[in-house]
Amino acid sequence: MNPTLGHLLQQEIPLTWYLLLSAVLFCLGVLGFLIKRNLITVFMSIELMLNAVNLSFVTFAHQWHEVKGQIFVFFVMMVAAAEAAVGLAIIIAVFRARATLAVDRIDLMKL
């Protein structure tokens, strides 16, 4: 085997970095939730947070050499898919009733 390639293949990085990336992504998601003014973008921020959490799941699964962490991610994806479907349907309904997607205008807590 090519020693350079072998060296490259043997290069390893600490899992801490992945976790840090996950934390930063999560906080960006929260931040997005707080500053975005469009309902759809706010919803995307939620997806971002979910993905950040998924990353940390996968990282820990790697750390413990455990399959269950990945299965958790699998379930989160399923739930996220269902949530996205329902959430977007709600957004459509809200838009139909209010004719706006601005979060600050949708503060009656009803359709």
Binding site: L15, T16, L20, T59
Partner: peptide, 18 residues
């Protein structure tokens, strides 16, 4: 979160050969 992650004990490493 960053403090907790950075101060945690060695979590191990990840490489392409894993």
């Amino acid at each position: 979160m960053a403090t907790v992650i950075l101060r945690s004990e060695d979590l191990g490493v990840a490489g392409l050969r894993d």
